[in-house]
Design a protein around this nucleic acid. Structure first.
Lengths: 140, 140
DNA sequence: CTTGCTCCTCTAGCGGCTAGAGATAGTAAC
DNA sequence: GTTACTATCTCTAGCCGCTAGAGGAGCAAG
């Protein structure tokens, strides 16, 4: 058993030490074995689980989704329909988010380009912010 | 002076009542005049300020940026360089965000497409999450 | 045996709201 | 005048996903 300390686990997984403890606290990681001196010990399976969590977080899944994905992972005989549904939902979210940010970007770009670098009184940035009606697309 | 209630202000601006109170509390809105019965009264200028805040929030500016933009708006003789810098910074942020979400989207799409709708044991979704090495682009 | 690092637990804070309790004000109908 | 109803008031606590800091204990090297 080559079990490692929380610091090692953090370096290995790229998840910060307090965050690892937090994951344990909210039950994403199981209760761990400890040394005599009460330090946490991480086995290979714990590190894998941590990697899974990290990757899922990077992909923007929220904690609840990850909790579900982890239980799915634990029972490999189940249908993967739920896992797929969760991933699809996330994909839709991301897509929507990209769309709305793209509209935002256009708006911001128009604002910035319109600025003549003069006084506030005739600044497009302030002006546009003050009057939503000036927006090209009012749907945000 | 046609001053309106907080409910009216909310309907007019699209900002929820508790949020309006919150903005006052953190000093984005000035202390307001009140009725004898201690209800807040919103004048046209307050409504304009509220609209400005809402629009800026929709464009994703954080509260501190909005605070600055508001003080800039109040002094129309100043140079608009700072306003422009804030807007540009936000534009850069949005752009970065879009880029990273687009990479994410590709990753998610690959995951979802790879799923054969079978058992968890051979599910691409779970598999990819468990092994970051399978990602096309490892930079997230 | 001391120095210096890692680790422990605990509580509080971040942003930007949102939700709820319990009290008061205002309005409309009877 | 009373009742019923809604809107508003203040205050505190909660949301997510951490992050920061206090105050203490374990442990390896010199």
């Amino acid at each position: 058993m080559t079990e490692v300390s929380i610091g090692e686990a953090a370096r290995h997984s790229g998840v910060k030490v307090p965050t690892i403890r937090y994951y344990e606290q909210i039950g994403l990681l199981p209760a761990l074995s400890r040394t005599d001196g009460n330090r946490r010990l991480y086995a290979a399976s714990d590190l894998r689980r941590l990697g899974f969590i990290r990757h899922a977080r990077e992909l923007g899944f929220d904690i609840e989704a990850i909790r579900t994905l982890l239980t799915l992972q634990d029972d490999t005989s189940q249908s993967c329909a739920s896992a797929n549904a969760i991933a699809k939902a996330r994909l839709t979210d991301v897509d929507l988010h990209i769309r709305s940010l793209t509209a935002l970007k256009a708006e911001l770009a128009r604002m910035v380009e319109g600025c003549r670098h003069g006084r506030i009184a005739e600044c497009r940035v302030i002006e546009v912010l003050a009057d939503h009606g000036e927006c090209a697309e009012p749907h945000h």
